[in-house]
């Protein structure tokens, strides 16, 4: 029984599958990392940039519980000590534009936060 061609076919399929990102990258390129539009005239976010990159989602989660459930309206920056009103719309979106900031990274990282099911950017989606 000569089953070598079947095995080789299987191998080729396997190789094609595991190298999918490679040949897909060869066809479509690496893709550009998002270029974010940073708010003008601002030098810092609520916490350090590194902290915000990694933990903004948890901060928002905390905020929503603080505001909605505990009726706490102010947040004091651990990094800088200044206070902010707890509000996605009034605070975050006051500086950042959803389409130019949030969406870009989320699209790049293929993250679909359900924040936007309810919240929106008054400056336009």
């Amino acid at each position: 029984m000569n089953d070598k061609w079947k095995i080789i076919l299987g191998l080729v399929v396997f190789l094609a599958a595991v190298t999918f990102p490679v040949w897909r990258g060869a066809i479509a390129g690496a893709g550009e990392p998002p270029e974010l539009q940073l708010p003008e005239g601002k030098t810092k976010c609520i916490e350090s940039k590194e902290f915000m990159i990694d933990n903004h989602m948890n901060m928002l989660d905390e905020w929503r519980n603080m505001l909605v459930r505990e009726d706490i309206h102010e947040y004091t920056s651990k990094e800088y000590g200044d206070t902010y009103e707890i509000s996605l719309n009034k605070t975050c979106l006051n500086c950042h534009k959803k389409t130019e900031f949030c969406d870009k990274c989320h699209a790049y990282a293929d993250v679909e936060p359900y924040c936007w099911d309810c919240h929106y950017d008054p400056k336009g989606d």
């Binding site: 996605l88 009034k90 099911d117 309810c118 919240h119 929106y120 008054p122």
Partner: peptide, 20 residues
């Protein structure tokens, strides 16, 4: 959609909150 108050998602219950 107006103002700064979020909308709701479908499938949740809502009511007056005394404008908390």
């Amino acid at each position: 959609i107006v103002g700064e108050y979020p909308t709701r998602t479908k499938g949740v219950v809502e009511k007056c909150t005394f404008c908390a």
